[in-house]
Every structure is written in structure tokens, then in C-alpha cells.
Amino acid sequence: MRKRVSLLNNIDKLVEKALITIQSEALFSKENLQKTIDVAESKAREIEVPVTICISDLSGNPRMFYRMEDAKLVSLTLAPKKALSALLMQAETKDLNKETQPNGELYQIETMMDGKLVTFAGGIPIFYQEKIIGAIGVSGGKVSEDQEICETAVRTFLKGESSCQL
């Protein structure tokens, strides 16, 4: 009897995980990605800073990538790196800066990761039902501006959640 209950609990957990995966994938619909980019771009225009925005999935693959006209060319490299950094570290990139300074617990991690990590603001992981599903990176302005636009993008992305319920 215990084996049967244990097996049913395992099946329930697998079904729950599968449902979360299916629901979170719905957040990556073209419509939700485009709306997220549009709202983030609107925020960037409001504060008068052209940026590049990258929305990546759990594998770190960019699912949508957009560079506003006049965004700094370096932002083409930094936006996806910010998204990947937030994803890999499961933390906002703004929170990594202090730890990567001399005497910090993560000092020199950027070097050890062959330059793949960015440890300044503008990258935020996306959590759905307490599971990480992707990340957004924004680059082109001051780090505080990138962070503000990125926060707007994450909020907008997660508003698509209501259309993801099965």
C-alpha cells in the first residue's frame, strides 16, 4: 500500500511539473513576447533611452531579441549576456555586482566563465510558479535605466500568465 501511495505521489509531482512546463511555454507565445517588447520599448522611449531587449527561455536561447534604432551597438552583446547571467545565477544581475568585487564571495567569476556573465543591472530571471523559466536582459542606457526597463518587461511578460492557465 505504501508503494502505491508513493507511486501516486510521484505521478502527481510529474503531472504538476509537466503542467507548469506547458503553462510556462505559453508565456513564450509570439503575442506575449511582442507585447513585452512593445511595453519595454514604450518605457525606454518615455525615459528617452534606446535599448536592446532580449527575452530568453530556460535553455538560455533568445526567444525574442529587439534593438531600438540608435541603441548602442554594444547593447547587442550585453542584453543577451544579461539575460543569460540572470538565468545561470538565478538572480538579478544588479545583485551580483557586490559579490563579484575583490573580497566578495564570487570574486573573479566573470573571468572563470570566459566573459559570459554580466554583473551589473539590467538582467532579471523570470520565475513562474516558483520555477525559473527564462530571463530578460536590457542594455543601452545607464544601468539604472536598463534595470527600470527590464523590470517593466518582466512585469509585462508575467501578465500573460492569465492566458496560460489550463
Rank of each mutant, 00 (worst) to 15 (best):
D95M: 03
S24D: 04
E41S: 13
L8K: 12
L96K: 03
A135H: 04
E99A: 15
F28R: 06
T36S: 13
T111L: 14
N9F: 07
A40H: 06
T152Y: 00
N61A: 15
I136V: 11
I136S: 06
I126H: 04
L14V: 11
M68W: 08
Y107R: 04
A153D: 01
F28S: 05
E25G: 07
G123Y: 04
K131T: 14
A86P: 05
S139H: 02
N103E: 11
K131Q: 15
M113G: 02
V118K: 07
V143G: 05
S163L: 13
E151N: 14
Q129V: 10
G134C: 10
N10Y: 12
G60W: 02
G140P: 03
L96T: 04
V74L: 11
A153H: 01
I53Y: 05
L8T: 02
T36A: 01
E31V: 14
E145M: 04
K131D: 11
T93L: 08
I37K: 08
L78R: 01
E25T: 11
I55N: 04
E148S: 12
E25L: 13
I53V: 14
A121W: 00
T21Y: 11
E31G: 10
C54E: 01
K82H: 03
K94D: 04
L73E: 10
E130P: 12
C150M: 01
K17P: 01
N32W: 11
S56W: 05
N97A: 10
M64C: 10
K94V: 05
T93Y: 01
G160A: 04
A79D: 02
M64Q: 14
D12T: 11
V15N: 10
A83L: 03
V138K: 02
L76P: 01
K43I: 00
S85K: 01
R45G: 12
T77R: 06
E145G: 09
T156A: 05
I20S: 12
S162Q: 09
Q34S: 14
S6E: 14
K81M: 10
I55Q: 05
T93I: 06
L8Q: 05
I47M: 10
V5C: 04
T77Q: 07
L78W: 07
K17H: 03
T77W: 00
C164T: 15
A71H: 07
L76Y: 04
K131L: 10
L88P: 00
K116M: 13
V49I: 15
K35T: 09
R2I: 12
S75T: 02
A86K: 06
N9S: 09
E105K: 14
V118Y: 00
I124H: 07
L166W: 06
S144Y: 08
Q101I: 05
K94C: 07
A44S: 14
